[in-house]
Design a protein around this nucleic acid. Structure first.
Length: 885
RNA sequence: GGGUCGGUGGCGGAACCGGUAUACGCGCAGCACUUAAAAUGCUGUACCGAAAGGUUUGUGGGUUCGAGUCCCACCCGACCUACCA
């Protein structure tokens, strides 16, 4: 027999599948649908990474099985192509990002096809395609044009929403400047990377450093666009109950959102005995300790200072402190956490609303500006950080809660089951002797009745900073007019295209490179026809990936098939017609008629995504963002489901051979192309599945891939043993039983993404085959069908060589012959006092009595029993006997 | 500090409902083929022991006829997160 020439085989079959459009899904097929999503790649110049191969290969195997099981499988792919590396590349080389992207995509495509991943290429999408980002921009405009009912994140009123209910959105008029919009602009301190010259989302700052380049991030005030994700915080937590995600993913999302229940408290401010107009509002989860508040602390960024600066007698020192704090990076601010610093704001006092005590106000950077209200009531007796601060500055410490005795606890247990009891209150006036759980409720109620506070819910999650000062992103479709203010680009003018530019450097002022393209920036206000300027910020990477799975369902959908002349390049002014202004199809206003992103029929057919595979690193960013967009689109009635993904799984990362994360600088990067060259695509696919448990990280091993390569060769040579036309009756029972055990085991494992054991089970069968002189074509064919998802080229080739039926991909998935398995002899384990002594082969219909007899007559068991008295015999039918002495 | 997941041979890892621990692969040793090597094939391979037999799933305890698996305490590691009021 000839050598296993994997190059020849793989080339032959990948051409075959391309020609046959294997992998193409059918809309509205009567077969059951399976929508299988993998995170689409960023097409970098480095080409496919073995990590991509893990996700795509496993999912490809799963989808091949599903197709053979009769499902209409959609397994699409696209390109998440906006982003910094391409822009940086353009900066270095002058090659336009569009050109670089096209080149990179070509590399990825070649690799993907070589590896035999059967994507549905008819649905390929690209986030940088104006026909795609047109709708990304459209979604942004809807955020801008809508308000969420009761959306203040700190209001404490939680919009009641069950998973299936849409929450009402309010359409906000263009000239309405007061209603809070879901997309809004705000001057705020942002994380700024001095090296990349880009504003960073909080999530992109990793322990004080820029996620991309590692430089220390700084703080900087800048007007930013934000999306009000906090309005959806509760639903994002609650609806996790309705989806099947790995538990750790759910936990991470819940922790990230960080919901905590407590109370808001208003402290009146006094200067020279007179009440000031400003109040100090704090959020606390421990309102039961309100009597123990001995001072207040506000963050250096707190706006109060500016408002009351004339009342502050030591304003110079205070401003000096603020200045020093602003120059610290987040990292410095947290690393120096051991030693707390601060300064008292002299000249003012805060008044505790519960007991009218006047207490000093400090400014200190251990209080974070972005959490709660940026101010805390300090209770040094019951908070470690406040205690440290009080120690350092010799501030009073007043104990107001003491541990409850067990007896008291028991007495109150029934009353307070819903609360965590820290103890009972002392030194708290009328609230003394209440448990802290009760006191939380009573004190908050009291505050509410005197207008000095209320129950409140607070989130760690902050609104999503949506502005980037870069070129290679979706332009934010907004126009700034001196007269009219913020004016959205009319929807019929979308897409708002990126203009071609010469220089990609961000400006020194921190504005996007677009700011220098004066032809483009200067435009005409769509409302008043006066001169106006375009927004020059672009959207973050996460924008295009927040809805791409919708577009796969209907990649060419266009709600307005007759395109208007593209007017955005040469605005002629006076574009007022609303004809093509897409109606916001709010509930009850037209059902599915206003569909924009994809046709409703197709979304109804395909959604939700049945399985979504990706990396763990995306659980708190991409996954949360896209759930947020989806819920918003659901509220707009653009999508039929409240959640986008029914099930989320995640694969582990592949480490280099040295056990370290792969990186160019370490020189431990494994290049898929080299592996294909050396071992072939099938071996690479199978090895990556075999490397370890799917959801854990595993280190690459050259010896390991060698072993899998040997397996492929053995399978190849074992096809010699196929005897034409022979029925499986000629195969030994041992082979048949093993074959059907393999069918059962491999199916179960593949269904549950236990890919390493799928491969090992196929190896086991092949090892048995190795010892046989011959095997029937039919049995070997069953084995090949199991192999097909793992090593499709090899399986298809051997199928063609050994079988009469045509194409392996058209064959049904093997069924287990239960009778065959049932007829087999079983092994009964005989134990004495729980220890294995003997095993006997017997038929499966053995009775318990017969089992006992067999056990007692076992030579080995009797030796082990000796003269001991038998106390009991435990019988597990058809499995085991334990003789207890 | 909080959260999550882990700890099984020389190594990567199997063991699904508590029922023969160490499947599969690597490595290693011996043999065959070869002038030789590579490749390939065969045999062996948790530990102690010549054998009979005994011991073994991070440590200590518990439940059970029986524990890698369940419960309690502790030790170690990885990842995420972190002055979150």
């Amino acid at each position: 027999m000839e050598k296993y020439d994997f190059h020849k085989i793989e080339e032959k079959w990948s051409e075959h599948w391309e020609k046959e459009h294997y992998g193409q899904a059918e809309d509205f097929s009567r077969k059951a649908k399976h929508y299988h999503l993998v995170e689409f790649p960023y097409p970098s110049g480095a080409g496919l990474h073995v990590g991509h191969c893990m996700g795509y290969g496993a999912s490809d195997a799963y989808c091949r099985m599903k197709r053979m099981q009769g499902y209409n499988v959609m397994y699409p792919i696209g390109w998440d192509a906006f982003g910094l590396p391409t822009e940086n590349y353009a900066l270095r080389t002058g090659i336009h990002p569009t050109v670089a992207t096209a080149q990179n995509i070509a590399i990825f495509k070649r690799q993907i096809k070589q590896l035999g991943y059967a994507f549905d290429w008819s649905r390929e999408i690209n986030t940088t395609d104006p026909d795609y980002y047109r709708w990304t921009q459209w979604i942004f405009l809807q955020f801008y044009k809508h308000s969420y009912k009761g959306d203040s994140p700190n209001s404490g009123t939680v919009p009641g929403s069950r998973s299936k209910e849409r929450s009402p959105l309010i359409k906000v008029a263009d000239d309405d400047a007061t209603t809070p919009r879901l997309a809004y602009q705000k001057e705020m301190p942002i994380n700024w990377c001095p090296a990349c010259k880009i504003g960073l989302a909080n999530e992109e700052v990793i322990s004080g450093a820029c996620e991309r380049c590692g430089a220390q991030a700084e703080k900087r005030m800048q007007k930013q666009w934000l999306l009000r994700i906090t309005a959806y915080a509760d639903r994002l937590i609650r609806d996790l109950d309705t989806v099947d995600y790995l538990d750790k993913i759910k936990t991470q999302q819940i922790n990230w959102i960080g919901r905590s229940e407590g109370a808001r408290v208003h402290f009146m401010l006094k200067a020279e005995g007179r009440k000031l107009a400003d109040e100090l509002e704090v959020f606390t989860t421990r309102v039961d300790t309100l009597f123990g508040a001995t001072f207040m602390v506000i963050a250096p960024e707190h706006p109060l200072i500016q408002n009351i600066r004339y009342q502050i007698s030591n304003i110079k020192e205070v401003e000096g402190y603020i200045d020093r704090a602003s120059r610290k990076s987040d990292l410095e601010r947290t690393e120096l956490a051991k030693e707390k610093t601060g300064i008292e704001i002299l000249g003012i006092k805060a008044v505790n609303p519960i007991n009218d005590a006047e207490i000093p106000v400090f400014i200190a950077d251990y209080v974070l500006p972005n959490y709660g209200t940026g101010a805390v009531m300090a209770v040094p007796a019951h908070d470690e950080r406040d205690w440290e601060f009080a120690q350092k500055y010799h501030l009073p410490i007043k104990t107001v809660v003491v541990p409850a005795s067990r007896k008291q606890k028991n007495q109150n247990e029934e009353l307070n089951q819903a609360y965590i009891d820290y103890g009972v209150l002392v030194n708290s006036g009328p609230f003394d002797s209440l448990t802290s759980g009760e006191a939380k409720k009573k004190i908050a109620e009291r505050l509410k009745s005197i207008g000095a506070g209320d129950f409140a819910v607070n989130y760690k999650l902050r609104d999503w900073i949506f502005s980037r000062q870069h070129y290679w992103g979706e332009p934010i479709p907004i126009i700034h007019c001196k007269k009219c203010g913020i004016v959205p680009v009319p929807e019929d003018q979308l897409p708002l295209r990126l203009p071609d530019i010469e220089k990609y450097e961000p400006t020194e002022t921190g504005k996007s490179p677009l700011a220098k393209v004066t032809d483009w920036v200067n435009t005409i206000c769509p409302r008043c026809d006066g001169p106006a300027k375009r927004e020059t910020d672009t959207m973050p990477n996460w924008a295009g990936s927040s809805w791409y799975y919708l577009r796969y369902c209907d990649p060419n959908f266009n709600p307005h098939p007759d395109p208007l002349p593209n007017r955005e390049r040469e605005p002629k002014g006076n574009i007022k017609d609303d004809l093509f202004e897409t109606p916001s199809p709010l509930r009850g206003e037209g059902g599915g008629e206003g569909q924009v992103l994809a046709s409703r029929d197709k979304l109804d057919y395909w959604l939700p995504v049945d399985i979504y595979d990706g990396g763990m690193e995306h659980t708190t960013l991409h996954l949360l963002y896209s759930r947020f967009w989806h819920k918003f689109l659901y509220d707009l009635d653009q999508v039929p489901t409240a959640e986008p993904y029914a099930k989320r799984i995640a694969h582990g990362i592949i480490l280099g051979p040295d056990g370290q994360k792969m990186s160019k600088s370490r020189g431990n990067v494994i290049n898929p192309d080299e592996m294909i060259k050396k071992f072939g695509a099938d071996t690479l696919r199978a090895y990556i599945m075999f490397i370890g448990p799917y959801d854990q990280e595993s280190a690459w091993s050259m010896a390991g891939i060698q072993g899998v390569f040997r397996f492929m060769n053995r399978v190849w040579h074992n096809s010699n043993k196929v005897t034409g036309g022979q029925s499986p009756k000629g195969d030994s029972p041992q082979v048949l039983v093993k074959l059907h055990q393999t069918i059962a085991g491999a199916t179960d494992d593949l269904t549950n993404f236990r890919l390493n054991t799928v491969v090992s089970k196929l190896m086991e069968f092949n090892n048995l085959l190795e010892k046989q002189a011959a095997i029937s074509a039919e049995s070997f064919g069953l084995f090949l069908r199991l192999l097909f998802p793992i090593a499709p080229h090899l399986a298809a080739e051997l199928w063609e060589q050994t079988q009469t039926q045509k194409d392996i991909s058209a064959q049904p998935w093997p069924q287990v012959d239960q009778e065959l398995l049932a007829e087999q002899k079983i092994t009964i384990v005989i134990q004495v006092d729980g220890k294995y002594r003997d095993g006997i082969q017997t038929s499966p219909d053995i009775s318990e009595e017969e089992m006992k007899q067999a056990a007692l007559s076992s030579q080995k068991a009797r030796v082990s029993l000796g003269t001991k008295r038998i106390r009991r015999i435990v019988v597990v039918p058809k499995k085991l006997i334990n003789i207890v002495t």
